[in-house]
């Protein structure tokens, strides 16, 4: 019934590209924020800057972006696996437009609410909707922040987030709010970028900075690891959690094309602790190192994008669950006697 399932690992086939993560930055964040008054409110990303970057991305965005389209289709494909229908759906920031154009009636959505923190991005979707409306779907638009979800409790059947949540400072908090917005038995579907994303770029940046500046600063943001995704779902209180991972390798003509694509996706560096100055020779050295370390024989440079897909349900009595401990009436030894000889 709700057999969305998991743990498959399909090593790439398509090409696209993606975004940054920089593990090396973590230690400094922790110490720098230790005395911040908010305590657990660790601020890693500059959300205001991210809004501006997404405003700009709305103008740079390509009509068709194969990476975003593939991720959106893969995510929406999961709806086909459910018998349940989702009359009201909330689509959170990230690749909004890719989700909208990939919907094709998945999950019999009747009302779609699209939300992003960037007004330009929402406006872009609204214009696109006016040009090529999705049949039978009443689409509405809101500008809102995933960390402060302006949605009434138990009001939507489905929450989709396509490549947006990795920019939240408080990912567990955002997921808890998404869970609260869901009706009982509602589905949460999210795609986030994982820690393997842009590993080539991270290496090239580090080497170039060491060489030219004698030290490193975070250029690629810290991203969740696969094992974190499952913990996040459980911590947010979703039932029947599922996580799976896909890796896409996108080929670019040069490292500079990669950066252009990141800009068009609004996925450029928005770390609070970023170094605001990027020296020209460091940038060129990064491109050169990227090229010499990772270029393929045909001269193209690959970039890895790891996408973690998460599914979780809001709890409902109709869902299957484990029986109480100690409630079993048959011993495992008996089971082994019955079936053990076959194995």
């Amino acid at each position: 019934m709700r057999a969305l399932s998991f743990f498959r690992r399909s090593p790439l086939r398509r090409s696209r590209r993606n975004e940054p993560f920089g593990t090396f930055s973590f230690a400094s964040f922790c110490s720098d924020n230790a005395d911040a008054p908010q305590g657990s409110r660790l601020k890693i990303f500059d959300r205001q800057l991210k809004r501006k970057q997404r405003d700009r991305a709305a103008w740079l965005m390509r009509q068709k972006d194969s990476l975003l389209d593939t991720v959106a289709e893969n995510l929406l494909d999961r709806l086909e696996d459910c018998k349940k229908t989702f009359p009201t759906a909330l689509c959170l920031g990230g690749s909004l437009e890719a989700i909208r154009r990939s919907l094709h009636g998945c999950g019999s959505i009747e009302k779609l609410i699209m939300m992003d923190a960037s007004h330009e991005m929402v406006q872009l979707c609204k214009n696109a909707e006016e040009e090529s409306p999705n049949d039978n779907i009443e689409t509405t638009f809101v500008v809102g922040d995933e960390e402060f979800l302006p949605v009434k409790e138990s009001s939507v059947d489905l929450v989709i987030s396509c490549l947006g949540l990795h920019w939240t400072n408080d990912l567990p908090g955002a997921m808890i709010q998404a869970k609260l917005a869901l009706k009982p038995d509602g589905l949460f579907l999210a795609a986030i970028l994982g820690g393997e994303t842009l590993k080539e770029l991270r290496i090239a940046c580090t080497v170039a900075q060491m060489e030219r500046e004698g030290g490193i600063s975070p250029r690629v943001s810290p991203l969740a690891q696969v094992r974190d995704a499952g913990n996040l779902l459980t911590r947010a209180g979703f039932t029947l959690p599922g996580v799976d991972v896909d890796e896409y390798t996108v080929k670019y003509e040069s490292a500079l094309d990669l950066i252009e694509h990141l800009r068009a996706m609004g996925e450029t560096n928005a770390l609070l602790q970023r170094n605001n100055i990027l020296k020209r020779d460091t940038a060129l050295a990064t491109a050169a190192i990227y090229d010499s370390m990772f270029a393929a024989e045909d001269g193209s440079v690959p970039a890895t994008f790891q996408v973690i897909y998460m599914t979780g349900w809001r709890e409902h009595p109709s869902q299957q669950k484990a029986k109480r401990r100690g409630s079993a009436t048959i011993s495992f030894q008996d089971i082994q006697k019955q079936f053990g000889s076959q194995s």
Binding site: T88, I113, E138, T140, P150, K152
Partner: peptide, 16 residues
């Protein structure tokens, strides 16, 4: 100017 859907669903992001 907001449709019925939004009016029903939206709440204050801070106080809910």
């Amino acid at each position: 100017p907001l449709g019925k859907t939004l009016t029903e669903i939206l709440v204050c992001p801070l106080s809910k």
